[in-house]
Nucleic acid binder design. Structure first.
Lengths: 195, 195
DNA sequence: GATTGAACTGAACACCCGTTCAGATAGAAC
DNA sequence: GTTCTATCTGAACGGGTGTTCAGTTCAATC
């Protein structure tokens, strides 16, 4: 039977994931040791292995959970409407999500090459799903004549790359408010696809 | 006095830099060992220290040389003319340069966090110089009324992020020719800034 | 053919790595 | 108060790390 007062597992588990995320985002997976993660949590390295089978799985689980959460969040945020309305919803969602969870997103993009081939395959599939959402919107808009695009595939990549850029410079409490940033990026995206 | 036939230093030195660049780009600085680099060159780890004082300097020198080469190349490629013409020159140059030297650029963006603070400062300054070139063009175009921009700083970051995206998907011998890719990116950039 | 010196090796240094596991600790249950 | 068990420690494992350096190699020179 589980303890009530004395139980730390429900604290330590999330603390490990949070510390690992923070450290991976700051220094990179390869440069962070299990002892560093443990120290951040206030525990010895051996204790980590009660919560993850190994370091690689710690990374993989983190990336998979983050990608799935992002996909689910978008499923809730997406709307019906014209391609232009759908694109606006996506741009605002994406910018907002990146600003809110910059560590998650940063790790998801930077640490792909530190996954084992099998794990990479899984994460890459989720990433393709996410990109597919954008490509769908652009394709719809292209077919309907709402968007003018030289190349749908390249436009998809370019749009996502442009939006991802926000996480490289955005800092809490900076010059621009979140709403303002959303608006600026939406203005640029709109111009990019405008017929 | 230097040997002529038997001298290997002029071969080994560049070979080390090339191997390190390739391996850093593939696996990341922290995940690549000096022994791996040496093996790629066909030499033992100790020999590397005839060509670099340490691993960190190997990374730093590589990044500094690459950034300086990129800046010099742009100085040669840039043109006088309207902001629109200057921007076109930049976009075509940037896309072309990224496609040609994807390893250099990839390392320059991915390994910033593995530099010591002092080295980071130096490289970051070069990167700011490069971004400054774009910001100048956008500012000129904004002032003259040629460009319509919600925020010059954000537009600069967004434009560069969009263009950098090309290196994440471009592969030699793919669906699109280099000239076609240049054209597509220029079309998108043009729309982004269009008044 | 002896000498020189640039280029490289091989072994060692001290330290850090991910991971394992017998044993300590302490709150919960009886 | 004893037992139980979830949680964590401390030490160890084999192996890898960046780096150093005395010694080897060998083409070029005299």
């Amino acid at each position: 039977m589980a303890r009530k007062t004395g139980s730390h597992a429900e604290i330590t588990g999330p603390a490990i994931r949070a510390a690992a995320l923070r450290l991976f985002a700051r220094s990179g997976y390869a440069a962070v040791s299990m002892r560093e993660i443990a120290a951040e949590v206030g525990v010895r390295a051996g204790a980590l292995y009660l919560y993850t089978p190994d370091k690689q799985t710690l990374l993989y689980d983190m990336m998979r959970d983050n990608m799935q959460r992002a996909l689910e969040a978008w499923q809730l945020a997406k709307i019906d409407g014209t391609p232009m309305q759908q694109l606006e919803a996506f741009v605002r969602f994406h910018v907002n999500y990146h600003v809110d969870r910059s560590d998650e997103i940063f790790v998801a993009y930077m640490e792909l090459r530190n996954l084992t081939p099998e794990n990479f395959e899984q994460i890459e599939a989720l990433r393709r799903d996410y990109e597919g959402e954008v490509e769908c919107i652009l394709t719809d808009g292209y077919m309907s004549g709402d968007f003018k695009l030289a190349d749908i595939r390249v436009s998809t990549m370019a749009l996502i790359a442009m939006l991802n850029g926000v996480m490289t410079w955005y800092r809490e409490g900076g010059r621009l408010s979140r709403v303002r940033i959303q608006q600026i990026y939406w203005d640029m995206a709109k111009q990019m696809v405008q017929a």
